[in-house]
């Protein structure tokens, strides 16, 4: 392919875009709406994933010692816990400290009520285990559960699972929406390009007769599709960048107080931009190539 030819194809593609202005506009809008949704869901899901992995990092196993266990039995248990694979650290949390921790996490009013429990502490002594890999937490917990002198074993399974469920639902909704919109956009693009092809059918016929290769004929339509897709990506990219910037500036601090952390603006927006441009280009090219194929049989 020579440079001059590529320039020619580019010009043809642009000309076609203008020739069917309204259809081009409709296709670009469809791509824009589709990518807007993709962008929002991507940012949501990526942040959820990030949040989940930070929560997972913090996941610990609490092994509560049986209330009736003697001190020796407790020692025995600690040794048993030490034998478990993949345990990174073991911290002892006596029942008094446990109560302190509990009281601290409560509001002013409840505190007084629980203060009175100091003399007759109903809590168990506990060991806090940290798995060397978050994913192994469950395994460590179940191993610990088999040891004697244990009241119960707790770990953050519920939190993680709930988060996981929310993310899954989000992901499913996102994928369904995006796929639906993607097909709409593709359909519109391939129709737009069909119009330009019909307008140029005579030209294509002559091109074929004088020996143009299919590739040569396809190029302008390929570029037109690419252009439709990429133009459709401009607004969503700008919106996602500006929107996330705003969100981050205004809410990141507040969320951090709640132990949730937003992903930093860079490189997230850059990655999302690339994904959006990529999907836009893909949809455009796909739409154009599906419509050209059958017109090439002369």
């Amino acid at each position: 392919m020579k440079g001059r030819t590529l320039v020619r194809h580019g010009k043809e593609g642009m000309k076609n875009l203008g020739r069917n202005g309204w259809m081009s506009f409709a296709s670009i809008s469809a791509v824009t709406i589709m990518l807007m949704v993709v962008g929002v869901f991507l940012i949501l899901i990526l942040n959820m994933n990030h949040f989940m992995s930070t929560v997972e990092e913090d996941v610990e196993v609490r092994v509560y010692v049986d209330l009736t266990a003697s001190e020796e039995e407790q020692k025995e248990l600690e040794e048993g816990l030490n034998q478990i694979d993949h345990v990174e650290s073991i911290t002892y949390l006596g029942k008094d400290e446990g109560l302190d921790e509990l009281i601290e996490s409560l509001g002013e009013e409840d505190r007084a009520a629980f203060e009175s429990l100091r003399d007759e502490n109903p809590l168990n002594d506990a060991f806090i285990l940290q798995a060397d890999e978050p994913q192994l937490t469950e395994e460590v917990a179940s191993q610990a559960d088999k040891l004697p002198h244990i009241d119960r074993v707790d770990y953050g399974e519920q939190v993680v699972e709930q988060l996981f469920n929310v993310t899954n639902v989000l992901r499913t909704i996102g994928i369904v929406l995006v796929l639906g919109l993607m097909f709409t956009a593709m359909f519109l693009i391939s129709n737009t390009i069909k119009l330009t092809i019909v307008a140029r059918q005579k030209e294509i016929q002559i091109m074929k007769l004088v020996g143009a290769t299919n590739g040569f004929i396809r190029w302008p339509f390929f570029l037109e599709g690419l252009l439709l897709g990429v133009l459709g990506a401009i607004v969503p990219v700008a919106a996602v960048m500006a929107g996330y910037h705003y969100l981050y500036d205004n809410f990141a601090e507040r969320l951090r107080l709640n132990f949730a952390e937003l992903l930093p603006v860079y490189p997230l927006t850059l990655q999302v931009t690339l994904v959006l441009l990529g999907i836009g280009a893909l949809v455009g090219v796909w739409g154009s190539l599906t419509s050209v194929r059958k017109f090439l049989k002369v």
Binding site: K2, R4, T5, R8, I206, M207, V210, G211, A212, F216
Partner: peptide
Amino acid sequence: AFALEVIEEQR
């Protein structure tokens, strides 16, 4: 010239 353009003949 169209017939030569599509076979990418030198200008």
